[in-house]
Design a protein around this nucleic acid. Structure first.
Lengths: 232, 232
DNA sequence: TTCATACTTTGACGCTTAACGAATTATGCA
DNA sequence: TGCATAATTCGTTAAGCGTCAAAGTATGAA
């Protein structure tokens, strides 16, 4: 009837939402503050994509998670500090200290991974920062995007990245793509795609099978260091 | 088996235990710190005695309640402050979405109420703030808790509150207990309990029947003002 | 001892809900 | 435009769980 007037009832619905193993796995995976997609959380919870979707819908309904759509990905994260506080309080009751918990995201997926078609993860963020430091990347005319400085165009030319050609594409040249695991920007758009393509072609990065994780090869470590002053 | 290595699993069982309306009603009824029998809790939860017994068995298994047998009565109570903390944290999560809930709270319950065994509500928060202002309450050695300064010990001695005696208890001396309705700290621990006991004994505060609400008496208004400079 | 009370356990019933695959929608890429 | 991927919705199945009445256990009183 009017559940709003029954605090205990309202709480029981929230607790029931947490009190299902698959959903609990999702929530405690998100406790590290990173946002993850439905499929990622499905893998963590060891359920099928459809089941994961149903669980996330319920968690969203109970306002335990919030969702941000970025392109065709939907990123789920805990909805506020209150939720983490409640999850931690429950952990105390369950008799497990908070330190036992280790975030279950595969480390490879956090270090470097493909976001659509460009390089994300902490490595992608480092690359973004470094190109800014070098002033190869400058603010674009529209304010939100990026542009390549003359020095940048010159620096990337040896890699077969033709700034003029990229600019002629209908696609957006370059922009700050927010990384939901690092919460910091990396390079998206045509330039970002060209960087990833180039790195893959030259075997500086290799894709892990059946996953978005990227691995930096030995050659990649050397080349990224020489050409960008970037050290992994 | 290997539940120790799965914090999420352990938590989901606890949350599931809370996430059943009848059990939630029992738990939130026990939040006032009183112990109750199985039949009483069955009436509160609106289930038959046999069902109540089954629910309580489960709550006991998850260590959410503890039971003491006295003659043929068995008294159930919340198993520690961790449990009340978790229940209140869940209340915050559940209450945030339904803003209706807060106004629905009896105003007496928001102004002053008992949190487990100490004074919460806006009055409890005021008292906490005032004792800090007076520098009677100082940060404890462990960083999270509070300690009583010499001035504080001297100020509370006339009320029959013996700081040394409280310190000798196994219980935590004093700490900032977060209040779900105010979302600000009030005084928990042995000192908080002593303050409530003292105020009740001297009739500065009276308990409303069958509820956690506290009412400040006329004498209480005068005394809190005189002794702490606190005005209601 | 016998009875009465307080509570728990047992067993059967019915409802809720998690699980999956298949089909559908939405977005991005060529 | 058509193809591929991400994610959701739908329909069905199966398991789990809450529910109660009745039988069982324990405590206290006559």
């Amino acid at each position: 009837m009017n559940a709003e007037h029954r605090p205990d009832l309202a709480v029981s619905k929230v607790a029931a939402a947490i009190g299902e193993p698959a959903r609990a796995r999702m929530l405690y995976c998100l406790l590290d503050g990173h946002a993850r997609t439905s499929t990622e959380l499905g893998i963590v919870a060891e359920v099928s994509p459809s089941t994961a979707s149903a669980h996330l819908a319920r968690l969203k309904e109970e306002r335990l998670v919030s969702v941000v759509a970025q392109g065709k990905h939907r990123y789920y994260r805990l909805d506020g500090e209150n939720v983490s506080a409640a999850l931690e309080a429950l952990m105390v009751v369950a008799g497990r200290s908070t330190e036992i918990f280790v975030p279950t995201t595969p480390s490879g997926l956090r270090f470097a991974r493909a976001c659509y078609d460009h390089i994300a993860g902490s490595f992608g963020v480092s690359l973004h920062d470094r190109l800014n430091e070098l002033k190869w990347l400058v603010s674009g005319s529209d304010g939100t995007g990026y542009d390549l400085s003359p020095a940048g165009a010159q620096g990337l030319a040896p890699l077969g990245i033709d700034a003029a050609a990229l600019r002629s594409l209908r696609r957006r040249f370059a922009y700050a793509c927010i990384d939901w695991s690092e919460r910091r920007p990396h390079i998206g758009g045509a330039l970002g795609a060209a960087l990833l393509t180039c790195a893959l072609q030259r075997n500086w990065l290799v894709k892990d099978l059946d996953s978005r994780a990227l691995r930096v090869t030995r050659a990649g470590q050397r080349e990224f260091h020489i050409r960008f002053g970037l050290r992994a």
